[in-house]
Amino acid sequence: MFEAKLQQGVIFKKIVDAIKDLVKSVNIDASTSGLSMQAMDSAHVALVSLKLNENGFKDYRCDRPITLGLSIENLSKILKCAGNDDTITLQTDEEEPSSLKFFFENQQASKISEFSLNLMSLDSESLGIPDTDYSSVIQMSSAEFSRICKELSSISETVEIETSKESVKFSVQGDIGAGSITVKNNQSDKDVDRVDLQIDQPVKLTFALRYLNMFNKAVSLSSTVSLNMSEENPLMVEYKIDDLGSLRFYLAPKISD
């Protein structure tokens, strides 16, 4: 028996919206500790990792671990039927479920929708992501980072991110010319302006902006985003989801030949 009831169903809708351009089908692993999901894009350049802790759910029960293979496109269609204020409940009482039930309830419990989504059996191609002590960590407004990526992607497909003790510099070079945006440490009390840099070792890494622009579809999940980098390592972009868990994106760097 597996049942997970999320009070703010809109969070689940936002998560699916944030990943639907990146991955086509995912395995959600349910266990006693909560839900986790890891999936790569078709080019195996980017990876999304979702962790939702059981204590962030209104009700949560998972008698034994199960894997739920879902088509993101079909999941999206079902979630379109959930209101932003609805609670969302996922449920199955089979051990090897062939489908997953969804219940959407409005606040007054006066409207209850029930859907059943057929499940897929997907071969899990999981990667072992080591816990990394990143040498450069940037916490900043997710809206601001999203804006920087959008603006720079009009000049080049590739951005170089260079950190130093007191600032982070995003640089682009394209056919029309070049540009850079430098953001300094800023302890402002205004969220949108605050920038926290923890730079143990400066890094200079290059990434494809189109993936960063896809990651930034997660801005609605958190007002802040953290960029985690170490030399010769994939970038990890993390959106913490209040009281529930986190949505992380990993992106392999581009290495100048």
Binding site: H44, P130, S256
Partner: peptide, 14 residues
């Protein structure tokens, strides 16, 4: 030119 690396060059398959 910059070559786009793949994640499996950094993370082992499990």
């Amino acid at each position: 030119i910059e070559l786009q690396k793949k994640l499996r060059e950094f993370f082992p398959k499990i």
